[in-house]
Amino acid sequence: MQTEKEIVIDIKGLYKSFGDNHVLRGVDLEVARGENVVVLGRSGTGKSVLIKIICGLLTQDEGSVIVLGEEVKNINRKQLEELRLKVGFSFQMSALYDSMTVGENIAFPLKRNFPNLSKNEVDEKVDSVLNSVSLLKSKDQYPAELSGGQKKRIGIARTLVLRPEIMLYDEPTAGLDPISSIEINALIKNIKEEFGVSSIIITHDLVCAKTTGDRLVMMFDGVVQKQGTFEEVFDSDDERIKSFYEYNFT
């Protein structure tokens, strides 16, 4: 008997426009618990807008976004903050607080959300999560002193410290050299295994998609064009999908 998977993100008929620019035009997407879903597509197809709607940074024009059983659009500010503790967001440019050290960056959301934690408890959690991303040695450095790959890892660590159930990665390998990209891909896989999180990974890097994704979703012009495993998605006669593959691999 096949057990039904728990759906942690359920998106139906999602529309979003900025003025006359119709970015999302009816997106449907489900993410199961423990699943890594990679959303692929060219720049400007609304991939980042999609995950910003999921965590409530943007509001959709139409459609439903249910995250961990909550309709994001309908919940109040307090409920949204509670939901956000369960949804980590890794930004494309890392978005580290440049006036704080790495340790302070990671401690910041902990101190803000759990003011009763002692200094030792905060330190322990910061050290533990820095260990997970192999950057404990950078604890006292400032973001300006880190490489692009290190910044990405710290950005991910800062979200992991809150022990989210869902991770949203916005272009995790963009702008990184191949070695750093491999490290980030390995980290994303490791996070899934170690922390048991479900993830949406926004990327146009097919190596990242193939390495990290259990399922791929190909978006064009604001709609989901095709989804399935890597092989299923790219076994296609669609010229746009073929050219996307060829751009990355030939």
Binding site: R84, V87, G88, F89, Q92, Y97, P109, R112, R158, L162
Partner: peptide, 17 residues
């Protein structure tokens, strides 16, 4: 500068008010 480098959004999504 914090806004355009998404630092304010990063605070927002981690419920850091």
């Amino acid at each position: 500068a914090m806004k355009v480098t998404e630092q304010i959004e990063a605070m927002d999504v981690s419920a850091s008010k």
